[in-house]
């Protein structure tokens, strides 16, 4: 991906889609966590270790959902802020073409209001922090998924279903990572 070759609006569209895709996967992760907890409860004593992991799973899913809610709010803020900024830049570009006439008339051309630029900068910093947090969550999730697979291997009568659940969890996590990377790259390079 080379965001700098796209227009800011194309990058914004890509950012918005990446955020939507991560939010969808986070919702699925939460559901899988709840499924795992129900299954562990059904297994009773035999599923005690799995139950501990499934609780971690649910906590992680909840954290992801909260982060992704923040991510969506921030994405909307950025979409608003940056498209406002784009409108102003477009106007400024046109006005600069007659800057000499304005100067002759003693009229000062306005720069972009600093508040808007600050809002966008703040939203970008927050976005980066959410993306970093989500990436750390993914790493932790992978550890939990691996532990769950090992634990599933010890289970006699529920090995297959527990393994399948752990695999689903791992796949959902894997599906989040590319979108998080896209968000990371766009945030760093594509939104100026």
């Amino acid at each position: 991906m080379a965001p700098t070759t796209h227009s800011p609006l194309e990058n914004l569209a890509e950012l918005s889609e990446a955020a939507k895709s991560v939010a969808f996967a986070a919702f699925n992760l939460h559901l899988l966590g709840l499924n795992a907890r129900v299954l562990a409860t059904k297994l009773g004593d035999k599923g005690r270790a799995f139950s501990v992991l499934s609780n971690e799973w649910v906590v992680l899913g909840t954290l992801f959902e909260t982060s992704m809610h923040r991510l969506q709010t921030l994405t909307e803020k950025l979409l608003q802020g940056l498209s406002h900024s784009m409108v102003r830049r477009k106007r400024a570009r046109l006005l600069r073409e007659c800057a000499a006439d304005f100067t002759r008339l003693g009229i000062q051309l306005d720069e972009e209001p600093p508040t808007s630029a600050t809002q966008v900068r703040t939203a970008r910093v927050e976005l980066q922090s959410v993306v970093d947090e989500a990436m750390r969550g993914c790493l932790l999730g992978r550890v939990i998924a691996r532990s769950a697979k090992i634990e599933a291997g010890w289970s006699d009568d529920s090995r297959e279903v527990l393994t399948a659940l752990a695999n689903d969890f791992e796949q959902q996590l894997a599906s989040i990572l590319p979108s998080l990377r896209t968000l990371d790259v766009l945030q760093r390079e594509g939104l100026t």
Binding site: S16, L79, S83
Partner: peptide, 12 residues
């Protein structure tokens, strides 16, 4: 004037 608001909603 309404482009940012429309574009943001379209993205959603």
């Amino acid at each position: 004037e309404i482009f940012p608001s429309v574009f943001s909603a379209v993205c959603r």
